[in-house]
Each structure stands twice: as C-alpha cells, then as structure tokens.
Design a protein around this nucleic acid. Structure first.
Length: 410
DNA sequence: AAACCATGCAACCGCCCAGCT
DNA sequence: GAGCTGGGCGGTTGCATGGTT
C-alpha cells in the first residue's frame, strides 16, 4: 500500500516559482519561521504549493547566504574527496560547504565535476585491463542516466547485475575514480596494472568465479551460479549438480525485497553489500587487511552445516585470495602470497620492490594535471598508516567515523 | 536562419526513517 | 507494536539556454 500524498496534487501549482511566490514565502518565513510544519505552511502563506515544494524552494534558493555557481577549486577538492569517501550523500557533502545546497552540489557533480574527472578516467580506465577485468561490460554505469540514454545499444547492458545493484554504481565509480587517482599519482602504479605480465597469477577457476560473481546474468541460465562454482571448486560435482542453475540464485543476489530471498541464498545477498563495503573501505584509505577480511567474509556464504563446510573449503581453496591479492598488488605493498613475484615474470620482482618503496610516499605526486591540489591526494592515500587527512582534520566528525570505516550501513 | 544537440539547473517524485499517537 | 505522518534525501525529469551543424 502506498502512502497518502502529502498534499492535494490536483490543487497545487507545479513548475517554476514566480517572483511573487518567492517573495511571499520568504517574507512569511523570515517573519514567522516555518513553524516546524512544512505541510501546513503553504496554507498559512497563501500559496497553492505543496509543502515539500515550499521547503525545497526555501532551502535551495530563498534561504539567506545561499551561494550559486562559481565553485572554487577548494570546493571541487572537497566534493571529490567526499564523494570518493562516502558516495552520493549530498546532504553530508553540503554540510561541509557553507552556503551550498545538496541539490546544487549534486547538479554540479553530475553535470561538470564528474565529467572533469571521468573524462580523464574514460581514457585511462578504458585502457586499463585491471578495471576492465572487473567491469569490462559495465562501463556504461559510470555515466548518468542521460549518458546512458545516449550510449549505443552495444553499450547498454541493462541485464547486468550491476544494474540490479549487486555492486552499486556509486561504489564502482568511486573505486574507479580511486584507481584513476592512483594512476595519476604514481606512473609506476599505472605501468603495473597496464601490464598483465606483472599481475599475480590467478587460477582460471578463480578468475571464472569472480567473473561469475560480477557478471552473472539472470537471463543466462547456462552460466553456473556462484554457489555451483564454489561447490565445483570443492570437488563436489554432485553438490554442484544438486544446485540447479536458476534465476532465483541471481535474483537473490540482487533483490532488495527480502521476500524474494530463499533461505539458502540469503547469504549471497549479503555478499553484494560486503563487496560494496570493501569498496568503501578502499576508498577511505582503509587498511587492506580490513579489506581482505571483508572479502574473506563476503566470499564465505553464511550457511550452516555441511553446506557451510563445503562452501568454506571451496572458498579457501579457490576463491579466497583472488581479489585481496589483486588489490594488494594494485595498491598496497603488504603483499599476500599471491602477489609474490612470479617466476615467469622476472621483472615483477623489481616492480614489486619499487611498489614497496613507494608505499606511503607523498612526494612527487601528480594531481590530475594540477587541476586539483595535493590536499586530496594525501587525503585518499591507500596507505592506511597515513590515514585520512579528513579524519585527522575531523572533517567527518559530524556523522561519525562509521561512515569512513567501511561500515555496511551504507 | 533553422534545426538539432548538449548542457545546466530547478523542481518533482518517491522512498526511507524517526517521531508521534 | 502497528500505523500514520512529516521531514529529509537521492534520483530523475523537464525545460531553458547556448553551441554546433
């Protein structure tokens, strides 16, 4: 059952506000305040407007000390870094920018700032095999709805689980932005992940598993489900066969409706949240060990009894180290075994050591063509020991450290 | 000059949550 | 505890404007 409308939609005016309406509303609020009830306000003011519309007009336009346009570079930096850190929590971002409204910032991000950054990303990331591994068919999600509408049919992957919020657009976009920044900050980082020969070796099954997790298509019943693959990895052909490939598995992963989730696959829905949690962790300069723990738990279906043992073994044997290793390799010198230099990639050793040496260094950081300053670069360092400048500066104090510790509350 | 397209921004929609009854 | 309500928020849309062909 939907909620009752907040006002009589038949008798309220919509569309742009006239100067007269603005004057009336402004004069009333300045004299009497809002009275704590926006719904009743229009009647008191004598406006045929919805209360919510009045509230929006006041907050976004009429309120004193509102600034429009003319964002400074410093504001750009703050918006970018906060977006990378916390995503599209515009009201929180706006709280850090006096005189700016969430709507303004949201518009500014969607229409300008994002293009400014992702315009560069488009070149770098599209040619970046690591990111392509994760999102080869999902680049369209980085665009706005309008961009999507403008994309070619070939780009449109509406059946993608990403589009069904397995991993939110915001989260992946933030991850890509983060990697974009790393590339620009550290050319060697770029040379590493643009060179497949330097990557840690990944068992084909692991590759397949993670691809399955990321690419599962509810319409493709030929693709074994993640659960099946986990069972297969554990050598349990029978169990794999017992788990019939069906759309329910995949719907479970992406469903937001708890009623759609079968008990067996309830845990997998949690997985998507945990992966997003991971991205949050990485984006906020969190520890890679913490990120690895997240992956560990994300890939361990939370089921009971024999199933749990089976999945757990499969996970331990095949899926466990893939993402953490890759992430370690990409951004952190705290290498796992998987990132140990490979025998068949002799150059990897030097690269690896160099990464180690580079870790934590803030020298010679190139901020994307100097368009933004170095403040942000240090703020979003991958190095957990250096922590976030925002944390140090108490920037997040208003909404708690949970938001920047990879909490799954988002 | 006109048509088309891209962009920016104001405003709306609908969901979520907290507080109240 | 359940239902209702208003406030708040993020996503999306519609329109005006400027640029390009």
């Amino acid at each position: 059952m939907g909620r009752a409308p907040c006002c009589d939609k038949e008798n309220v005016k919509k569309g742009p506000w006239s100067p007269e309406e603005d004057a009336k509303l402004k004069a009333y609020i300045e004299k009497y305040g809002t009275g704590g009830n926006w719904i009743a306000l229009p009647q008191k003011v004598g406006l045929k407007r919805c209360g919510k519309s009045c509230r929006l007009r006041w907050l976004n336009y009429l309120r004193p000390n509102i600034k429009h346009g003319g964002f400074t570079e410093e504001e750009d930096n703050i918006i970018c870094s906060l977006y990378i850190s916390i995503g599209s929590r515009w009201s929180i971002i706006a709280a850090q920018l006096p005189g700016r409204t969430d709507n303004d910032i949201k518009n500014y991000w969607n229409t300008r700032l994002k293009k400014k950054l992702l315009g560069r990303r488009k070149h770098n990331i599209n040619n970046n095999p690591v990111m392509n591994r994760f999102s080869s068919s999902h680049s369209s999600q980085l665009n706005t709805t309008r961009d999507l509408n403008n994309s070619s049919p070939d780009d449109d992957d509406s059946s993608s689980p990403y589009n069904s919020h397995a991993l939110s657009n915001s989260a992946l976009e933030r991850l890509q932005l983060h990697m974009q920044l790393q590339t620009l900050q550290n050319p060697l980082f770029s040379s590493f992940y643009n060179n497949p020969a330097l990557w840690p070796k990944i068992h084909p099954l692991r590759e397949k598993m993670i691809q399955s997790l990321l690419n599962q298509n509810p319409n493709n019943t030929n693709c074994p489900s993640l659960i099946q693959q986990l069972a297969l990895a554990n050598g349990s052909q029978q169990q794999a066969e017992d788990i019939e490939p069906n759309k329910a598995d995949l719907c479970d992963l992406t469903s937001t409706n708890p009623d759609n989730v079968s008990p067996r696959h309830d845990s997998l829905k949690i997985t998507a949240a945990k992966i997003e949690d991971l991205v949050n962790s990485l984006s906020t300069g969190g520890s890679f060990n913490y990120a690895k723990n997240l992956i560990d738990t994300a890939l361990m279906p939370e089921v009971d009894g024999a199933e749990a043992m089976s999945y757990g073994n499969a996970y331990n044997g095949a899926a466990a180290s893939h993402i953490p290793a890759e992430l370690d390799g990409m951004g952190n010198s705290k290498a796992t075994n998987d990132f140990a230099p490979q025998e068949d990639h002799p150059n990897a050793n030097a690269e690896f050591d160099y990464f180690k040496d580079m870790n934590g260094s803030k020298d010679n950081i190139l901020w994307w063509s100097n368009e933004l300053d170095m403040k942000l670069a240090s703020a979003i360092s991958w190095d957990s020991t250096n922590s976030s400048a925002f944390q140090n500066e108490g920037m997040f104090q208003d909404y708690g450290s949970g938001a920047i510790c990879g909490s799954s509350q988002y």
